[in-house]
Amino acid sequence: MGGIILDIVLLFFLVVCALAAVRMRDLLSATVVLGAYSLIMAVIWTVLNAVDVAFTEASVGAGITSVLLLATLSRTRRGEAGFEDAPRRRVVTGFRPGNLVLLLVAVFTFATLVYGSTDLPDFGDPEAPIHTHVAPRYIESAYKETGVINLVTAVLASYRGYDTLGEATVIFTAGLAVIVLLRRTRE
């Protein structure tokens, strides 16, 4: 019971953070609020027993992403369009019929997704298809076939080796692009 209340409090925190970050015209403040978002997101990963994902979220989401966003802000401007002119004025947009259509599309998509998720197996159900399809085969033969003790490492680095190579290529390219963009230029 207490765990459910804790989950609700944490998820409420996430929603409030996300809405606030979207509504803010000052991008520096939005970056700060996104840092809080990542901190709580990592707590939720920990509650879900995904400790390694929580590590990644804490270091990448709360640490590196904030620094990269700040570096971007230092190269561009601090606010959205209109921030410097009227930082205190709240932007009020009138009612447009097009917005109603967009709202209907969004609500319809949301309802479809919720309807589709009612068929899903329970969280952590051992009889779920994902646990009975290929997982037993990996558990039985991964060590024999690859010689790697850690099962996750065996799947990532051996069974899906080419996939991981592609991911590493993407990350390498992204890192290279960041270095090229943020490099200190000599006059």
């Binding site: 840092g35 990592a42 590590f55 804490a58 620094v67 230092s74």
Partner: peptide, 21 residues
């Protein structure tokens, strides 16, 4: 507890970057 320790270690990175900016 290990996760909490890592958190305590990296908590200040973003703050330092903000203040420097």
């Amino acid at each position: 507890l290990d996760v909490a320790l890592v958190y305590a270690l990296i908590n200040f990175i973003a703050t330092i970057a903000f203040l420097k900016y």
